[in-house]
Simulated scan of single mutants.
Amino acid sequence: MTTEEEFRELALSLHGTEEVAHFDRRAFKVRRIFASLEPNGDTANLYLTPPEQEQWCDIVPGAFAPVPNKWGSRGWTQVWLAHIKLDDLHAALRAAWSNCGGAE
């Protein structure tokens, strides 16, 4: 299980990431937003490529699912924090960060 604060710390640990407001959520961006955290802290959305989304949904089906709208078909993926290990979340966040301009 990953907590909301662990999610935030992992996201902010990625080089160049800043936390910004995005509607009713906290969002994390480098050049573009790569992740957002729901106000209740139960789920987050990550920007993965469609193949990455499919891979993560297969690897951890109880934790990952496409966002249930047109954004999901573009790679936006919902993550249930209670169902994901910290190491898996870090890897998925890193992929989303890289997809939005993050680089070491």
Results as ranks from 00 to 15, higher is better:
104 E>C: 13
10 L>C: 03
15 H>G: 12
56 W>Q: 05
34 F>P: 07
5 E>A: 11
72 G>Y: 06
59 I>Y: 13
79 V>E: 01
96 A>E: 04
38 E>V: 04
35 A>E: 02
73 S>W: 14
99 N>K: 09
90 H>V: 03
48 L>G: 00
90 H>A: 11
66 P>Q: 02
93 L>I: 11
4 E>M: 13
68 P>Q: 05
77 T>C: 10
33 I>G: 10
73 S>K: 15
95 A>Y: 02
67 V>E: 05
18 E>G: 13
29 K>P: 08
67 V>H: 11
15 H>Q: 14
29 K>I: 02
82 A>R: 11
65 A>L: 07
28 F>C: 02
50 P>C: 06
62 G>H: 13
61 P>C: 08
70 K>I: 13
12 L>E: 04
68 P>F: 07
80 W>N: 00
73 S>A: 14
85 K>E: 11
19 E>D: 04
24 D>Q: 15
49 T>N: 10
2 T>Q: 07
83 H>T: 08
81 L>G: 00
3 T>R: 07
65 A>Q: 02
10 L>E: 01
69 N>P: 03
78 Q>F: 02
9 E>W: 12
26 R>K: 12
79 V>G: 01
6 E>C: 05
63 A>L: 00
21 A>E: 09
75 G>H: 08
98 S>R: 15
93 L>A: 02
100 C>E: 14
59 I>A: 13
9 E>F: 07
57 C>Y: 04
20 V>L: 08
25 R>S: 09
54 E>A: 12
76 W>S: 01
90 H>L: 09
102 G>E: 06
66 P>E: 05
46 L>N: 02
12 L>M: 08
9 E>D: 09
84 I>H: 00
103 A>V: 14
13 S>V: 05
6 E>V: 07
99 N>G: 03
11 A>F: 03
20 V>K: 14
59 I>H: 11
82 A>W: 01
55 Q>E: 15
20 V>D: 10
38 E>W: 14
9 E>N: 10
97 W>C: 04
7 F>L: 07
72 G>I: 04
103 A>F: 12
12 L>T: 01
9 E>V: 08
41 G>Y: 01
101 G>C: 08
40 N>L: 12
77 T>K: 04
31 R>V: 05
21 A>L: 09
37 L>A: 08
29 K>E: 09
33 I>F: 06
94 R>Q: 12
63 A>K: 00
55 Q>W: 15
59 I>Q: 11
36 S>L: 08
78 Q>A: 09
27 A>T: 00
61 P>A: 08
90 H>F: 13
48 L>C: 07
78 Q>K: 14
89 L>C: 06
15 H>S: 13
47 Y>W: 13
3 T>K: 01
78 Q>M: 14
13 S>Q: 09
72 G>S: 06
19 E>T: 07
28 F>D: 01
14 L>R: 10
100 C>Q: 15
7 F>I: 02
9 E>S: 10
7 F>S: 03
30 V>Y: 07
60 V>L: 14
60 V>P: 01
30 V>T: 09
35 A>C: 06
70 K>R: 15
31 R>A: 14
86 L>P: 00
60 V>M: 04
36 S>H: 12
97 W>L: 00
53 Q>E: 05
57 C>D: 06
102 G>C: 04
93 L>Q: 05
35 A>K: 04
10 L>M: 15
94 R>Y: 12
42 D>R: 13
48 L>Y: 07
51 P>H: 06
86 L>C: 12
28 F>H: 05
3 T>F: 02
